[in-house]
Design a protein around this nucleic acid. Structure first.
Lengths: 224, 224
DNA sequence: GTCATAGTTATCGTATACGATTTCGTACTC
DNA sequence: GAGTACGAAATCGTATACGATAACTATGAC
C-alpha cells in the first residue's frame, strides 16, 4: 500500500479514519467533526485535520471551508467517473504488467479466481469483492510504473467507500467477471500484444459499469 | 483548476509554494523548512505544514518523517513514470473530449498551434511550452470526466516542476509536435473513432518521452 | 402563521508553545 | 589520522488556546 501503518499520530489518524470509511462505519454523507474524531483516537485535532485533508486529496472526503468534512461517495455520477477512470488505468496497468507476469503468478491468480467461483455458489459477495481485488493485485504486483499502481489503489479506495453503503450486486455480472478473468489470464499466457490485453482489461471494468448503468437507467458514458 | 486561489492561509501557502516550485524558484532537492516558509509568508507553521502535505499528495514534494520536506523531481525515472502515465491519461482525455469539441474550439486550438509554430522560428521555448498546455487545455475544456482532467493537471504540474530545472529541449521534437497537433485536430474534425484518437493522442506524448530517452540513452519503457 | 433578525452555540482556522527526534559539529580515544 | 561518542543546534510533531465563521434557535414584527 502507499502509506505506512503507524508512526506519527497523523498517520494513525489517517489509517483509522480511512479504515472506517472503507469498511463502511462512516457512510457517505457522514459528518466528520475534527474534535470528535480527535477524542475518539486520543489525539489532538491537528493530526486529525491533517489526516482528513489527506483523505480529501484522495477523494474519500469532501472538505468545506469553515463548515467541515463529510465522507464523499453516494453520488452515482461520482461512481461513474471513478469506474471510467479506473477502467482506463487498470487497462494500462494490466498491459504494462503482462510481460512481467510469470507462470507462478498466473497460477496464483487462477487459484484466486477459482475461489471467486466458489463464492458465487455459496453466495458470499463480500468475500467475492475482496478476492476480486486480490486477483488484480496479483496481476499488478510487478507493474513497472508505480504512479499507475497508485492511481489504481486510489480508485479502489473510492469504490470501497461507495460500495460499503450503496453498491448493489448486479445479477449475472459476477459470473461474467470470473469468465473474463480466465480469458485475461489466457491472453497474458499467450503473450498477446499490449493493445489487446489493454482493451480486454479495460472492457472488464467497463462491463461492470455498463451493467450498473443498465440497471439504474443512468445515461451511458462508456465510449468503449 | 482544482484549488481556490486564496481564502484560508493554508490555501495561500499552498498556492505560494506550489507556484515557486512550478516556476522553478524552488528547484528539485530544495529543502523546504516549515518555519522558514512560514516566516516568508507571514503565517504560522501549521497552515504551511498542511500546504506541504497537500503538495506531497500531488507528488511535487517528498516528505520524510522527522526530517523534513524537499522538492521532488530531478530523477529521470520519475520523469519517465510521469510521462508514461500522462500519455495514458491524455490519450483517454482527448478521446473522451473529442465528440464535444465544436468548430469554434478547433479554430482556437489551431490559432494556438500557429503561435507555437511562430515560437519555433523565434526560438522561444518557454512560450512554446506554455502554448502547448493551452492547446491541450482547449481540447480538454469540455472533458466529461473531471477525475481524468484532474489527473492531467497533476501530471502537468509535476512536469513543470521537473522542467523548470532539468528539462532540455530535444532538437526537432518541437517541430514534430506541432505537426502532430494539426493531425490530431483533423482526426477530431473528421469524427474519427475514439480508439484512433486515443492512440494518436497517446503517441503524441509518448513520442516526446521517446525523444528524451533516445537522447539520454535511458532504457526504453514505452510499450506503445 | 410566516418571515426576518439577533443572539447563541458548535466548529473550524491558526498562532503559540514545548517535547521529541534527527543532524551536525566537536572533542576524545586508539 | 580515522573513527567513535557525546553534546548542541536545528527542525519536526503535536497539544493547547483562542479568534473567526457559519449553523442553529428563539424572539419579535407584520
Amino acid at each position: 500500500m502507499t502509506e505506512t501503518a503507524v508512526g506519527s499520530k497523523s498517520e494513525q489518524a489517517y489509517a483509522a479514519v480511512k479504515a472506517r470509511i472503507v469498511e463502511g462505519t462512516y457512510t457517505p454523507g457522514y459528518r466528520l467533526v475534527l474534535a470528535k474524531i480527535a477524542e475518539d483516537l486520543g489525539v489532538s485535532v491537528v493530526p486529525v485535520r491533517e489526516a482528513i485533508r489527506r483523505l480529501e486529496a484522495e477523494g474519500l472526503v469532501k472538505f468545506e471551508r469553515n463548515v467541515g468534512a463529510t465522507v464523499s461517495g453516494i453520488d452515482p455520477t461520482e461512481y461513474l467517473y471513478t469506474m471510467q477512470t479506473l477502467s482506463i488505468i487498470e487497462g494500462a496497468a494490466t498491459a504494462l504488467s503482462a510481460p512481467l507476469i510469470d507462470s507462478v503468478a498466473i497460477a496464483r491468480a487462477r487459484a484466486v479466481n477459482a475461489e471467486m467461483r466458489d463464492c458465487l455458489e455459496h453466495f458470499d459477495p463480500v468475500r467475492f469483492t475482496a478476492l476480486n481485488q486480490d486477483f488484480h493485485s496479483v496481476l499488478f504486483e510487478h507493474c513497472p510504473n508505480p504512479h499507475i499502481l497508485d492511481l489504481v489503489h486510489r480508485g479502489w479506495n473510492r469504490l470501497a467507500s461507495i460500495r460499503a453503503s450503496t453498491f448493489r450486486f448486479v445479477p449475472g455480472r459476477a459470473q461474467e467477471s470470473v469468465k473474463e478473468h480466465e480469458a485475461l489470464l489466457q491472453l497474458i499466457e499467450s503473450n498477446a500484444d499490449a493493445d489487446t490485453i489493454e482493451q480486454a482489461a479495460r472492457r472488464h471494468r467497463s462491463a461492470t459499469l455498463d451493467a450498473y448503468l443498465a440497471q439504474t437507467n443512468a445515461g451511458s458514458l462508456s465510449a468503449h
